[in-house]
């Protein structure tokens, strides 16, 4: 029995462009983008901020974690139409005035290996410490539950956080 690979109907879609203003790491940006372009692509491609990584694209790994209006979010789940007027903070902002204490702790305690989950992980730790400056066990485990790391087995990451206490 022969099977043809079905072909999607060819219809030309005119991409809807929108103007958005957003503040990224303290800088005002006004850009024209497709309404459904993902924040992670805007950051990595339009703004060349490749510190924010991409790994699962469905909110399941945390590699793309950034702060939006001071709250941790997955940049792969957010689209241009949702970010107008928002304030975005990415990993690049953290070391604008020298290494952030979280970054130092990660360096000293082995909080990373390949480093690919690290920007997202550091942002998640930042969100944790912003809310709970001296987090307890439960708070640490909750705060990092959406960030996967395949290299460290998390123990180095937990050591890093405990070190900052």
């Amino acid at each position: 029995m022969m099977k043809k690979q079905t072909i999607q109907q060819e219809h030309v879609f005119e991409q809807q462009l929108i103007n958005i203003s957003l503040c990224v790491n303290g800088q005002e940006q006004t850009i024209e983008v497709e309404a459904t372009k993902r924040l992670v692509d805007i950051l990595r491609e339009d703004l060349q901020l490749t510190g924010t990584k991409i790994s699962c694209e469905i909110g399941r790994c945390g590699a793309c974690s950034v702060m939006m209006d001071k709250k941790l979010v997955n940049a792969c789940l957010i689209r241009a139409y949702q970010v107008n007027g928002k304030e975005i903070m990415t990993i690049e902002a953290l070391s604008q005035n020298g290494l952030h204490p979280i970054q130092n702790a990660f360096l000293e305690e082995g909080g990373f290996q390949c480093g690919y989950c690290t920007p997202g992980m550091v942002m998640a730790v930042k969100a944790l410490l912003d809310e709970h400056p001296a987090p307890d066990e439960e708070q640490i485990l909750q705060a990092l539950s959406g960030n996967l790391c395949r290299c460290t087995g998390y123990s180095g990451i937990i050591r890093s956080i405990l070190k900052m206490k």
């Binding site: 909110g59 939006m68 941790l72 997955n74 969100a127 539950s145 959406g146 960030n147």
Partner: peptide
């Protein structure tokens, strides 16, 4: 609600 997804997803 605390068992749904993870903090970043719950913010959205």
């Amino acid at each position: 609600i605390g068992t749904i997804a993870a903090p970043a997803v719950r913010n959205l």
